[in-house]
């Protein structure tokens, strides 16, 4: 359990938020051209990093907006938060 600084609402309890998994997984531009292997990679395979990971979160019980987070999964320390569409900070 930790506090999350929503870029729209400010600091709130983590239980107001919903984790949306790994960030920056690009949606296939030509879905009809994709092989089964590429579909598996897009749909199922995850980095699942122990350490600094880029994630999507949703302020589900607040403004309901999506944003990105850089978090260390080994200690739940939040390194950075940035809005959708913004460039991820260099790590």
């Amino acid at each position: 359990m930790f506090l999350i600084n929503c870029p729209y609402c400010g600091e709130r309890d983590q239980q107001e938020f919903k984790a949306g998994g790994e960030a920056h997984i690009e949606r296939p531009k030509q879905p009809t051209e994709l092989s089964d292997d590429e579909w598996a990679e897009y749909l199922f395979m995850r980095k699942n990093i122990k350490g600094v990971q880029f994630e999507r979160w949703n302020h589900a019980h607040g403004c309901r907006k999506w944003f990105n987070m850089v978090r260390d999964t080994s200690n739940d320390e939040i390194k950075a938060i940035y809005k959708m569409g913004e460039k991820p900070p260099a790590q």
Binding site: G21, A40, E41, F44, M45, R46, K47, N48, I49, K50, T73
Partner: peptide, 18 residues
């Protein structure tokens, strides 16, 4: 829970979330 960590060492990706 650390399967992905080992998989990453071998350059593999797994469909797991820990």
């Amino acid at each position: 829970g650390h399967s992905s960590v080992i998989a990453n060492m071998a350059g593999l990706r797994l469909p797991l979330e820990s």
